[in-house]
């Protein structure tokens, strides 16, 4: 394919990773420290709930579960931070010049950036979680507070999530709440990721903060509009209805389709904005296809 050469892509990936290894290492190190502090705090310092449990093993289980939950949330947030810095190679004019003049296609550069700040960033973060857990395990060995590694609990945690989704599918009747759960569990991560990717391509400076602000405004407008519509309809609009098992998959399929379309639109717009990047500020009308 003329637009994509695997050999050049590998060179690009190697170049980006190697030239910025210190910065990547710094971010993974920060995450490692955050997880280590969190684990030490929950498993060693915060023993205030101990008396509520009948025996120590229950307490340990509860503590580990709590650690797993908080770590998962932190991982999710950290993954968003990573995605929102996908196009940090364009945040100064000097960086933009260097990146845009590099002999590789737009597609190769885009995929390379996305890969580094999504998959590789996530893998790095997972390694940091396990490294922090191992460090915590070693540090707490000499003390009386002995806790096992959280890897087992992590896999149990993941299993619980899958089981929840399965149980939702296995129900005979469905309601809007269940559908929202599915959407939340299955589609929130890719949709958020693609939204922050778009934010990264639009906002060259402070992409994380500005994307969060934009999302708050967008959601605020959406809910205000919804409330306004409900108000106009005089509360006659009821969304509390049950679906039977036969029609539920159709609704799920439609919702998944809509979410996937939204993800695709976000990724497509990011690519388009990235491909049309100039060394000066954005111009919105450049998103339109030019016939020049």
């Amino acid at each position: 394919m003329k637009n994509f050469s695997l050999q050049r892509f590998t060179l690009l990936l190697r170049r980006d990773l190697f030239e910025n290894w210190k910065s990547h290492f710094k971010y993974i190190g920060l995450f490692y420290i955050a997880i280590l502090i969190l684990e030490m705090f929950i498993l060693w310092i915060d023993t205030s709930d101990f008396l509520e449990y009948s025996n120590r093993s229950h307490f340990v289980d509860a503590q580990l579960r709590q650690t797993c939950d908080i770590t998962s949330c932190l991982f999710y947030l950290w993954a968003i931070v990573g995605t929102s810095y996908t196009f940090c190679c364009l945040n100064t004019q000097a960086k933009r010049t260097g990146h845009l003049m590099l002999p590789a296609t737009k597609c190769e550069k885009f995929v390379s950036n996305v890969l580094i700040y999504s998959i590789i960033w996530w893998v790095g973060s997972i390694i940091a979680i396990f490294a922090a857990d191992l460090t915590r395990y070693i540090l707490l060995l000499p003390t009386e507070e002995h806790y096992p590694l959280i890897g087992k609990h992590m896999s149990e945690h993941l299993g619980r999530c899958c089981s929840n989704i399965y149980q939702l599918f296995a129900q005979t009747t469905w309601n809007i709440k269940d559908l929202s759960k599915i959407l939340f569990l299955v589609l929130l991560f890719p949709w958020t990721g693609s939204t922050f990717l778009l934010g990264s391509s639009i906002f060259r400076k402070r992409p994380l903060i500005l994307t969060v602000l934009s999302l708050c405004i967008a959601w605020g407008l959406f809910f205000s509009l919804s409330a306004f519509i409900v108000d106009i309809c005089g509360n006659t609009l009821s969304i509390e209805y049950n679906l039977n098992k036969a029609e539920a998959p159709l609704y799920i399929f439609i919702l998944i389709f809509i979410f996937l379309i939204l993800c695709f639109v976000n990724i497509f717009l990011s690519y388009r904005i990235f491909g049309r990047t100039q060394i000066i500020g954005h111009r919105w009308w450049e998103l339109r296809k030019s016939k020049r």
Binding site: R8, T92, Q93, A94, K95, T97, G98, M101, L102, P103, A104, T105
Partner: peptide, 16 residues
């Protein structure tokens, strides 16, 4: 295009 980028090099006033 890749052919163009392989044949043009820019030394800007400020670079990193």
């Amino acid at each position: 295009s890749i052919e163009t980028l392989q044949d043009i090099f820019l030394v800007p006033e400020e670079f990193e």
